[in-house]
Simulated assay, not measured.
Amino acid sequence: MSDGQDGRANGRPPDGTRITPEHDDLLLDVMLGKLATYLRMCGYDAVYALDEGIEADDAVQRRAAADARRLLTRDRELAASTPGSILLTARDVTDQLRELREAGVDLTLAARPARCGACNGSVDSLPPDCDRPEYAPDEGPVWRCRDCGQCFWKGSHWDDVAATLADL
C-alpha cells in the first residue's frame, strides 16, 4: 500500500477513521474494473476510469482531485504521486478486497442496492404495482438504475458477493 503525500499510511486517514460509502467516493484506475462492481454493491460511488474514457495517469489524478475521490490503483508511481490513494498489489479481486479491508475500507454489503453495478448510477425501488421485467423474480423487491435502466434484486449473485465478503 502507499503512503500518500498527505501522510496517510496505507490510504487510511491519520486518525484511523474507516473509509465508508457515506464519506468516501472512489475512483478506480483501468486495472481495477472487476473490483468496481463489489464496491458499488457495498454502496460506494465508485467510478471506473475506463468507463469514463480516462486512461492517462495525469487525467486520472485530475479527475480524482476534481471530484474529491480517493484513488484506488495498482500503479505504484500513480499511487505515490496521488495523495490519499490506496495502492493494491494483488491481481485477484478477492485478494484486492482483502487489501482494501486491511487499509480500513468498510466492505459491508449494503442492505439494499444504492449504485448500479454496471454503470455506477443511482438505483430506485420499483413500485409494487410496476410491471417487472420478464427476467426478474416474481417475489421480493426489484431496483432499477436511473441511468442505464438495468434492474437488480437480491438473488444468487448477491449471495455470492455476500459469501466472498464474509470469507475475507
Rank of each mutant, 00 (worst) to 15 (best):
residue 88 L to N: 02
residue 111 A to I: 00
residue 40 R to P: 03
residue 41 M to N: 07
residue 161 V to W: 06
residue 151 C to T: 15
residue 159 D to M: 03
residue 20 T to I: 01
residue 44 Y to G: 12
residue 126 L to S: 09
residue 41 M to F: 11
residue 39 L to V: 11
residue 44 Y to T: 09
residue 168 L to T: 12
residue 96 Q to V: 01
residue 134 E to Q: 11
residue 153 W to L: 11
residue 144 R to N: 04
residue 103 A to T: 02
residue 55 E to S: 12
residue 5 Q to V: 03
residue 148 C to E: 05
residue 52 E to H: 05
residue 51 D to R: 11
residue 107 L to S: 08
residue 6 D to Q: 08
residue 71 L to M: 09
residue 115 R to L: 13
residue 122 S to A: 10
residue 142 V to G: 01
residue 8 R to L: 00
residue 61 Q to R: 15
residue 104 G to N: 10
residue 55 E to M: 08
residue 142 V to M: 03
residue 147 D to M: 01
residue 67 D to V: 08
residue 111 A to F: 00
residue 32 L to G: 12
residue 85 S to R: 08
residue 118 A to K: 03
residue 70 R to Q: 15
residue 94 T to V: 13
residue 153 W to Y: 09
residue 41 M to G: 07
residue 143 W to M: 12
residue 127 P to V: 10
residue 69 R to G: 07
residue 15 D to E: 14
residue 145 C to F: 10
residue 46 A to Y: 02
residue 105 V to S: 07
residue 3 D to I: 11
residue 139 E to Q: 14
residue 54 I to C: 11
residue 85 S to V: 02
residue 62 R to E: 13
residue 4 G to N: 04
residue 45 D to C: 08
residue 127 P to E: 15
residue 114 A to K: 11
residue 56 A to Y: 04
residue 88 L to I: 00
residue 28 L to W: 05
residue 168 L to W: 14
residue 151 C to Y: 12
residue 83 P to T: 05
residue 89 T to F: 07
residue 21 P to C: 01
residue 40 R to I: 02
residue 70 R to P: 07
residue 149 G to S: 05
residue 63 R to G: 04
residue 163 A to Q: 12
residue 114 A to Q: 13
residue 19 I to W: 04
residue 150 Q to M: 12
residue 159 D to F: 00
residue 33 G to I: 00
residue 152 F to G: 06
residue 14 P to I: 14
residue 49 A to G: 13
residue 56 A to K: 14
residue 17 T to D: 09
residue 153 W to V: 09
residue 158 W to P: 06
residue 46 A to V: 06
residue 27 L to W: 02
residue 29 D to M: 03
residue 97 L to R: 08
residue 48 Y to E: 09
residue 90 A to M: 00
residue 119 C to M: 04
residue 122 S to E: 13
residue 64 A to N: 06
residue 29 D to G: 08
residue 18 R to S: 15
residue 79 A to S: 13
residue 109 L to M: 14
residue 134 E to S: 11
residue 145 C to A: 10
residue 77 E to Y: 03
residue 155 G to D: 10
residue 6 D to G: 11
residue 21 P to D: 01
residue 71 L to G: 13
residue 137 P to F: 09
residue 78 L to T: 02
residue 109 L to I: 06
residue 125 S to R: 15
